[in-house]
């Protein structure tokens, strides 16, 4: 699923990585615990999270996650967004809660990371 399709499905705002809209995501994982993200991350994974910290970006960089979706209307501050620049990490923000955002992507055919 292309990132631009994820944007449409979640009615999301692009916070960083506008140039990655045609990038293909192959699975997704939702969590607010970063050690769990580090345990499960594989492939071209989208991370859905309600966390709003520098560590989300660093966790994505460490585990090669190309897409972070901030749920529940959480918009990270400029310092966090700037940390993603130049790292091939796209940041999206949606007002949907975690449950609904995950459900919409699952319904649209994006599988969980455990099926990869």
């Amino acid at each position: 699923m292309k990132i631009k399709d994820v944007c449409k499905i979640l009615n999301a705002r692009v916070l960083a990585g506008e140039e990655m809209m045609d990038f293909d995501i192959e699975c997704a994982f939702g969590s607010d615990m970063l050690s769990d993200v580090l345990t499960f991350a594989r492939g071209r994974m989208a991370l859905l999270t309600g966390l709003n910290s520098h560590q989300v970006i660093r966790t994505a960089e460490i585990s090669d996650i190309p897409l972070i979706i901030f749920v529940r209307g959480r918009t990270p501050d400029k310092g966090i967004i700037d940390l993603a620049h130049g790292k091939d990490i796209c940041l999206l923000g949606t007002d949907l809660i975690m449950y609904e955002a995950c459900g919409k992507l699952y319904n649209a055919g994006l599988p969980p990371v455990t099926r990869l």
Binding site: D32, M33, L34, S35, D36, V37, L38, T39, T49, L51, S53, Q55, V56, T59
Partner: peptide, 15 residues
């Protein structure tokens, strides 16, 4: 609240 401290760190290191 920052997403760490779940007690999974050493398990990840071992894995």
């Amino acid at each position: 609240s920052q997403g760490f401290g779940a007690g999974r760190g050493f398990s990840n290191i071992k894995r």
